[in-house]
Structures are given as C-alpha cells and as structure tokens.
Amino acid sequence: MQDYLLILIGTVFVNNIVMAKILGLCPFMGVSKKLETAIGMGFATTFVLTLASGASYLIDTYLLGTDLFYLRTLSFIVVIAGIVGFTEMFIRKTSPVLFRVLGIYLPLITTNCAVLGIPLLNVQERHGFVESLFFGLGGALGFTLVLVLFAAMRERLEAADVPLPFKGTSIAMITAGLMSLAFMGFSGLIR
C-alpha cells in the first residue's frame, strides 16, 4: 500500500508530468485560459490516462510480450485513440457544455504526449498492473493539479498590465517556467 502511495505522491508532485517531465504542454497551454474548462479537461484526461495506462499494460504484457515489442508505440496510440473517442462521445452526451468548451482539445487528448508517455514509462519502469494504474492516475492528477492552478493564475493574469510583447502565451510560458521552478522544491522528496 505504501508503495502505491509513494507512486501517487511521486507522480503528482516530485516528478510532475508537466512541471518536471515537461510532457503534455499542448493542452497545458491550450486549455488553461478558463478555470472551468481546465477542470473539465483535467477530469477527462484523468479518465483517459488511467484507462490507457491499464489497457496498455494488459496489451503489452499479454498481447505483445517480448516478441512484438516493436508494435508497442503503434498499439498504444491505437488504444489511446479508441479511449479518447469513447470519452468524447460520452462527454458529448453527458455534458454538452463541457464538450463545447473543450472543443478541439478533447480529441487532442489523443496527441497529448503525456498520455502516450505514461504507458511507455510504465513499460520502462517495469510497473505491474496496479502500479500502472496508479502511475497513470497519479500522472493525470498531477497534470490536473497544475492545469487547474495554472488556469486560475491565467484568469487573473488576463487582467494584469502585462507589457505588450509578453501578453498572452508568452507570459503564460514564463509563468509555467516559474511554476516549474517552484516544483523543484519537491525534488528529492521521494528517493
């Protein structure tokens, strides 16, 4: 049990997928203009990532094995695309508003490199099934956490007198950098 907790803390804070691994920057920059959208995106990604993490473990272990390891990336992408497609239909039915605000970014979860990165890291780190699930969940929660904090900050930034050349995306990038700096404080927390 303690191991799983450590995986969670490790992936959420210490090795945060966005702040420390610098993965998933596309939705991080793209869907962080509004707090509500960010929260929706966070949950959608959490759902997809956890599922993808588990499913890819099963495929890798039971279908591919050691013989077909060269199919890993390909099959993972196919699985992720499938799960995203499913999530898209699900959200469209259950929450048209969220579907609307997520817009193009919902199908783009497919190309969120964090979503592919986590399953690949699972393989690299030789995680078991439950570990993979927790690793996926933790990575996704970490992503959601920083995305939501970032979105709240950007909402306030929207009204600040940022110098013109830095307005918009550039100040957001700088902010992301400073957030990353703050996250360095977590380094070494889990050895």
Partner: peptide
C-alpha cells in the same frame, strides 16, 4: 493478428458508444 484484434475490439466499443 494482434493489430487487427485491437482494431476490432476498439471498433466494436466505439460503435456501441456511438
């Protein structure tokens, strides 16, 4: 076979979801 299998299963799930 593996890729076809994956595609088949996913296709089925997506079709059902649609």
């Amino acid at each position: 076979l593996v890729m076809a299998g994956i595609a088949l299963v996913l296709g089925g799930v997506l079709g059902w979801a649609a």
